[in-house]
Design a protein around this nucleic acid. Structure first.
Lengths: 105, 105
DNA sequence: TCAACATATGAACATATCTTCATGTGTTCA
DNA sequence: TGAACACATGAAGATATGTTCATATGTTGA
């Protein structure tokens, strides 16, 4: 059952889990995406509204929202022509808060 | 006191704080660095030992340890020829655990 | 059905990032 | 002092990532 050649700490997750984890943090590692997440953290918002709030191109926001979607960090709701985005759960907020704690000493 | 033109959520941190935050998460967003952090999470380890544990080049590990150092995520201790690295605090572990929670559903 | 609007997406470019190789710096001990 | 060892670092190349522009898709209302 044991693999004695492996020199790793006991609780090191599988390598592929670590890749997933890295991918997740990568998503948080971009200021545009962080700003989007903050912007929709309280209320859902349409793509255009997010773009206006951040003063960025609609296309840029759409591309980044796709990344957030693919990583299940946002919820999507269509209403007529617009699509409203909101944070998927408080989990996301907590990850950000955790990071903020570190940044703000 | 209020700036009515700004269309942001109330608690959006300053833009430069968000850049710092993104930079922090960027550090976590690489599987090599995550593996290093895991490797030294229980006990401090020398650079060579980390490289052996992960089966990677010493140079690669050194480069990434520098990134971790610059972001104050590791502690450094010299003992003779070797330099021992360990995680800076439990804060770091908690950020990783938080991410793992999300990845593991 | 068609124009107007909201959003998504592909291609292209610029920039950032990671790894490797070669070499530099610092430490020990004979 | 000078090998031998441990670690750090600069340069270079390959790859990944973010933004923009142009355009496609999907929805509404006349």
């Amino acid at each position: 059952m044991e693999n004695e050649e492996k020199v790793t700490t006991p609780e090191m997750p599988d390598i592929d889990v670590l890749f997933e984890l890295a991918d997740l943090f990568k998503v948080f590692g971009d200021s545009t995406r962080l700003r989007i997440m903050y912007t929709i953290s309280e209320n859902e918002m349409s793509v255009l509204n997010i773009a206006e709030a951040l003063n960025m191109e609609q296309s840029t926001i759409s591309h980044q929202l796709r990344v957030l979607r693919q990583n299940k960090l946002v919820r999507v709701r269509r209403e007529g022509k617009q699509i409203y985005y909101s944070l998927d759960d408080d989990h996301v907020k907590r990850i950000i808060e955790m990071g903020l704690d570190h940044v703000l000493e």
